[in-house]
Computed example of a mutant assay.
Amino acid sequence: MRDESAPASEAGAEEPVPARTGPGRWQRSRARVERVALELFDRHGVEAVTVEQICAAAGIGPATFYRHFGTKDGVLFAYRPLFLEAIRTAVSRAPAGTASDQVEAALLDFAEYLEAHADELAMRDRIVAANPVLLPRTLLVQREWEAELTRALAAARGVPDTDPTVWWNAALGLVVIRAAFRRWRGEAAATLRGCVRESLAEARATIATRAAPGTTPAHPDPATPPALEDERAREGHDGDG
């Protein structure tokens, strides 16, 4: 039976459905195929690698690939739901306190998760750097991180996700993660947790020098850190995008 989600020319023989293989085996199979695909992309470039080559290297049929990932780009960004879940988990573990304190604790927890996937992250970085067409999709994924952090923080504090303190701290969190990543990549002996601490301290110091004493931001646009405003301008989004 042909997998209807795949193009007719690429659909392969019937593969075992997830319910019969069990969730553990299904997840392991997905992770293995993802790793094989990333290694091929890293070695040969995304455009040069075909779905057939991924399937041959992973020892699966095309139908299985399409059930796992849908498209070739899908395998490259298959980490998205896992990372979003890691953000939710990090916020849920953060001790009670101010929104700023909760974001700091969540970022440090999330940094541990990312550091555990350092090799895979480095591989994805190389793939995106070699294929600039993927950069807009990568930036959208980072916006998803910010939105998920906003929702999780709002839920933890029992306030709407439009609360200024919540979205302000979530936006700051994304800027900090981006800055920490750059520092982490450039300092071989550094830990990502340490880079998050340093970047957060620098961000807070920078904001303190720009903010008028005693004022509280009332809308995402004026509250957005300059680095994030510049990034959004390059993306072609406004402050509410």
Score class of each variant (00 low, 15 high):
1 M>E: 15
2 R>L: 07
6 A>W: 13
14 E>D: 14
15 E>N: 04
17 V>S: 06
17 V>P: 06
18 P>H: 02
18 P>F: 04
20 R>M: 06
22 G>A: 04
27 Q>K: 15
27 Q>T: 13
28 R>I: 07
30 R>W: 12
30 R>L: 15
31 A>P: 15
35 R>F: 08
39 E>D: 15
39 E>C: 09
40 L>S: 09
41 F>P: 15
42 D>C: 11
43 R>V: 10
45 G>P: 13
46 V>K: 08
49 V>A: 12
49 V>K: 05
57 A>I: 11
58 A>R: 08
59 G>T: 09
65 F>V: 04
66 Y>P: 07
70 G>Q: 12
71 T>Y: 11
75 V>E: 03
76 L>G: 11
83 F>T: 02
83 F>A: 11
89 T>Y: 04
89 T>V: 12
91 V>I: 03
91 V>M: 08
92 S>H: 09
96 A>H: 13
97 G>D: 07
98 T>H: 02
100 S>V: 08
103 V>S: 03
106 A>D: 03
107 L>T: 14
108 L>Q: 01
109 D>V: 00
110 F>V: 00
111 A>G: 02
113 Y>Q: 01
113 Y>N: 01
116 A>L: 10
119 D>G: 09
120 E>N: 12
120 E>L: 15
121 L>W: 12
121 L>I: 12
125 D>A: 15
127 I>L: 14
128 V>T: 11
129 A>V: 11
132 P>S: 06
135 L>G: 09
137 R>Q: 15
139 L>E: 03
141 V>H: 05
144 E>L: 14
145 W>P: 01
147 A>D: 08
148 E>Y: 01
150 T>L: 14
151 R>D: 07
153 L>M: 08
153 L>K: 05
153 L>A: 05
154 A>D: 13
161 D>C: 06
163 D>Q: 10
166 V>N: 01
166 V>Y: 00
172 L>F: 04
175 V>R: 03
175 V>W: 00
177 I>K: 00
177 I>N: 00
178 R>E: 02
183 R>G: 11
184 W>C: 00
184 W>E: 01
186 G>S: 13
186 G>T: 12
188 A>W: 09
189 A>L: 08
191 T>M: 00
193 R>G: 08
193 R>W: 01
195 C>P: 03
202 E>K: 14
204 R>G: 07
205 A>Y: 08
208 A>E: 12
211 A>I: 08
212 A>W: 02
216 T>R: 01
220 P>A: 01
221 D>G: 13
222 P>N: 04
224 T>C: 13
225 P>H: 05
225 P>T: 05
227 A>I: 05
230 D>H: 15
233 A>T: 10
233 A>L: 13
234 R>T: 09
234 R>M: 09
237 H>W: 15
241 G>E: 10
